[in-house]
Design a protein around this nucleic acid. Sequence first.
RNA 1: GCGGAUGUGGUGAAAUGGUAGACACGCUGGCUUUAGGAGCCAGUGCCGCAAGGCGUGAAGGUUCAAGUCCUUUCAUCCGCACCA
Length: 804
Amino acid sequence: MKRYKPKDVEPKWQDIWDATGVYTTNLQSSKPKYVAMSMFNYPSGNLHIGHAMNFTISDVKARFKRQQGFESYHPVGWDSFGLPAENRAIKVGKSPQESMAELIPEYRKAYKAMGWSNDWEKEIASHLPEYYKWTQWIFAQMHRSGLAYQDSRMQWWCELDNSVLANEQVIDGRCWRHDGPDDPLVQKKEVKQWFFKITDYADELLESIDGLDWTDSVKLAQKNWIGRSVGAEITFKITDSEQSLSVFTTRPDTLYGVTFMVMAPEHELVRSIFTEDQSAAVQAYIVATQKKSELERQTEKTKTGVFTGAYAINPINGEKIPIWIADYVLAGYGTGAIMAVPAHDERDEEFAVMANLPIIQVVDDNNALINSAGFDGQNANEAREAIVGQLVTTDQAISKINYKMRDWSVSRQRYWGAPIPIIHCAKCGPVLVPDTELPVILPELDDFKPTGDGRSALARAKDWLAVECPECGGPAERETDTLDTYICSSWYMYRYLDPRNQAEIFDKAIVQKWEPIDFYNGGDHATAHLLYARFIGHFFKNIGLVDEPEPFKQFLFNGKVTAADGTMFSKSKGNGIDPLEIINQGYGADALRMFLMFAAPLDTWAKWDPQGVPATYRFISRIWNLVQEYVATEPAPASSDQAKELLRVTHQMIKKVTEDIEGNRYNTAISAGMSAINELYKLKVQALGRNDAWQQALEAVVACMAPFAPHASEELWFDLGHHSSVHVDTWPKFEAKYLVQDTIKIAVQVNGKLRGQIEIAANETEENVIATAQSNERVRAHTEGHDILNTIYIPGKIVNIVAR
RNA sequence: GCGGAUGUGGUGAAAUGGUAGACACGCUGGCUUUAGGAGCCAGUGCCGCAAGGCGUGAAGGUUCAAGUCCUUUCAUCCGCACCA
């Protein structure tokens, strides 16, 4: 008998699949479409177990749909620009280009070894000019739409990367790439940056979250990230000064309760307003704040601050109120200054107590205004508009909606990215490179380390740098910043649908047919990437490129794989699991894939169990051996009882597996397959012969397990007599009629406690069921001598006898 | 602090308000001349010889019936973190 040897079976089918193109998607197909994909990969090292988890999840989904008759597409590509790749290149002393040329083919081999059903004809890589031409084009479109602008900002600066960092790349005060305890804290540095005005889309992005079929925690994280709050910006004049101070508040109704103002120490107005006698204290406080780490500022329980010596005028009543600086007010949120209402804000109250400042209550327990002059007695909620309305007439306030989310910084002072298609001309200012001259090719350099003066290595490429201004023809210089790689990854799902188009970013008709992505999954980027991709989708919709603004219909935020002790695998600990090693040990990709999908629900973090892959290997062997035994046996009709039982087992499994894969419950889908095999083994002991019932049962098991174990299933499918792939149009159809049974087993409870089990005809009347239940010996032992008060019969399930 | 999630055998985990622990690991026993990451069968929540009793973090409640619904509480994990 042919034994199960993955080392023979898997490479064989991988080659055949390549040669026959089973996974090549026909984008013009008349079949219904389906796209399942995982977040594409940074080629920065080896394939690790986390990749194996992510890509297997989407592969199973794509395979399932392909078997169900969909034109199913499981795309593949590389997120090949960016810091990790550049850092690795610097480390190994090769250019990032060379490094990619070596890494990507290795990944391709690994992907094939995992048995993922990728369409390699449509492979993309974000570092190739044919791709980044369109990344640059998107920048140009943003620019033309007024959504790209340049501004000087204090930015987080990592001195190891010599680059600015986005807020989301700063973790606990450290750079996301250098977050070890010995790594330096990030600094603030003023840098001229390009931004995308994602804040213009804040409302749109917020409103459409609810309609998404996404993991709830991610939807919530995005809502919080956008952080919309409705209020007003109110202007306070500063005494003895031409300047004024603007604050954002959600509570204009408490304006009469303002007893002091607080500015962030970093606020630019601070320098020009503090008085001579407060100078030393203010300067000292600013220095002290700079020295504090983010972590220290966060964990400090008590409020600190310093009086500036300056005063502001409350626009509603002309009161003179002191202006303080304190580090509990953040420079980056709102206007960087607040009106303090200690009676109605905990933090302001703490501060007032510390600084011995007055506290005036202006809203009573019934939410009515008090101590508020002409507004007294009004409901606080209603008074908000009235107060703002009054100030608006004198230009001292405007209604405003504020967002926590800030504009997207898209500049990077690094080499390994798409050059920003801008030319700086002394006469014309920053000018877009004409679309006809895209892509702006990233020049190859010998030294691609940052210059360290804040500019990327591109500043050294003198020939590349000097150009004519597209507008006036005068001498000009190219922009040396490159684009944030989050731009590359925010539109790649569209390029997957038309990867070789040289004339336009993609063919609108193809994208219209194939959008949105039906299934997307990953274990990271709840806010950054997933928000940026949605932003680009909405932008594309608004400029008429797509019909559907939301790129991903369904998103599954899947769990990761941890070591057996629950800690993360990491390179530094050296406890990683190498998927290829597991495969090469002889267990094969099928067993590995199946274990990863079986170990835990997809949204739960799975623990690596060294016994896990052998277990799924055993399961696949059991299917394998049964099929081999079957095909070697003689034709013989099944008894009608056995045929009936075979079909019942088969269709029960089909139903469960189909529903569970559809609902992303892969672990229970696999256990349904295991249960079916266990039952088939028992039936085999009675009789095994080649006949329709056995054939149908075995085909169903093979087809239903094919998404998880594609290689073994393919081999067995052919062994069962087929001549074309199990992976296309083979999903068995569930038929309820096979589950109908003549007799059923019913549990009997007395007072809610299980006391017995009875077997009854499936269509037995309630009266007879209850009579049978009451006559059951074990039930009688608990009812005799008691009055029966009530009986409940849930058809097909349970009888409960209530006795006293 | 705020928000979210999760607490079930020795372990990973199953359970539309209806027989808790499917499936798998591990363990125990049996069978088979078994060179194999062996296979097959049976058993395996806890206490108890048994009858039976007890069991889903804890305490209450609703219900004929609660892992599931409600209240309180504890623990763990995740996200955000002085958001004006």
